[in-house]
């Protein structure tokens, strides 16, 4: 049976592989052949793709696969990196992006003490109330509060940003991810690749560049070949070298900022990742031993069966 299943899967794989090749040839000059991430961006930009036929395909370039401390079966967060990422978020991103699912108390996960979390929360003002007089009032944030939004509501956020509200960052690292394509998505099952979000965020933040010759971007947008939905996006390049001062000696570069904030956003989106992977390892050990015991029992019982 196993042999049949395998041969079935293989034949299916060959079929899809064959069609993939056909596609790559048919669409050679168009961005549809997104498999060749290394191809020069100039040939792939927006307008030409649209002219070639049907929907233009974005992103123009696929994000590079970075190495993350939280990848793989024993993945864990690098607390120093998360703290740096928090600094980048607080000093840069939080000017426009809310993160309203994350409570200050959870910052303990970044290695801060209770007192440090309390002090950090106290930097923020939140609205509370109504009080006994029926009035709303503002007070210093407590660890139980969530990060307050930079704008009063979504409409205010949109009005201040050319009509499109900047996305909330609580889940950003899980809410983004570029399709991996065949056959990479098959290999991903075995390599446990789950870092599409942080890879994308890093690629986008480091990917701002001058548009290639002949490519026009709409006014108010900024060319970035890594952007998922178009050739250019509304957000201007948010990070520059030296913009955030690190106190642990990490390089003050856009690349480093981007890695740190991407790691921080992964934590914000998945605060229980370490616990999950740790539990998983124990479950795996249990299941493997359990399966082994059942296998031995089954073999012994079948061997004793009269013929």
């Amino acid at each position: 049976m196993m042999k049949h299943v395998l041969s079935g899967l293989l034949s299916a794989a060959f079929l899809t592989l064959a069609t993939d090749t056909v596609l790559a040839q048919e669409n050679a000059p168009a961005p549809a052949a997104s498999h060749d991430a290394a191809a020069p961006a100039g040939e792939h930009a927006g307008a030409e793709g649209e002219a070639h036929g049907g929907t233009p395909h974005f992103p123009i370039k696929k994000p590079a696969q970075m190495s993350w401390s939280f990848a793989g079966p024993f993945g864990h967060y690098d607390k120093a990196q998360l703290q740096r990422g928090l600094k980048v978020y607080t000093e840069v991103c939080s000017a426009c992006h809310s993160m309203n699912l994350v409570a200050f108390r959870t910052l303990r996960g970044l290695g801060y003490s209770e007192a440090q979390v309390k002090a950090f929360a106290a930097n923020y003002e939140v609205q509370d109330g109504p009080n006994a007089e029926g009035e709303m009032y503002t007070r210093k944030a407590l660890p139980s509060d969530h990060f307050p939004s930079p704008f009063a509501n979504a409409e205010a956020a949109a009005a201040a940003n050319n009509g499109a509200a900047p996305p909330d960052m609580s889940l950003l690292a899980k809410a983004r991810g570029i399709e991996r394509g065949f056959p990479t998505f098959v290999f991903d099952i075995f390599t446990q690749y789950q870092e599409g979000g942080p890879d994308y965020i890093h690629a986008l933040l480091t990917g701002y560049q001058e548009p290639p010759k002949g490519v026009e971007v709409a006014p108010g947008t900024h060319y970035n070949p890594y952007f998922a939905n178009a050739a250019a996006l509304a957000m201007a390049k948010p990070l520059n070298d030296g913009q955030v001062t690190y106190d642990d000696g990490a390089p003050a570069t856009v690349d480093q900022y981007s890695r740190d904030v991407a790691a921080f956003l992964m934590w914000a989106a998945e605060p229980h990742l370490e616990e999950r992977k740790r539990t998983g390892f124990m479950v795996m050990i249990f299941l493997v031993i359990f399966t082994g015991l059942i296998y031995l029992t089954k073999r012994a019982v079948y061997a004793a069966k009269d013929h």
Partner: peptide, 11 residues
């Protein structure tokens, strides 16, 4: 469940 819980879902 433990290592790639979002693989089968859509971002």
């Amino acid at each position: 469940i433990f290592y790639m819980p979002n693989y089968l879902g859509h971002p």
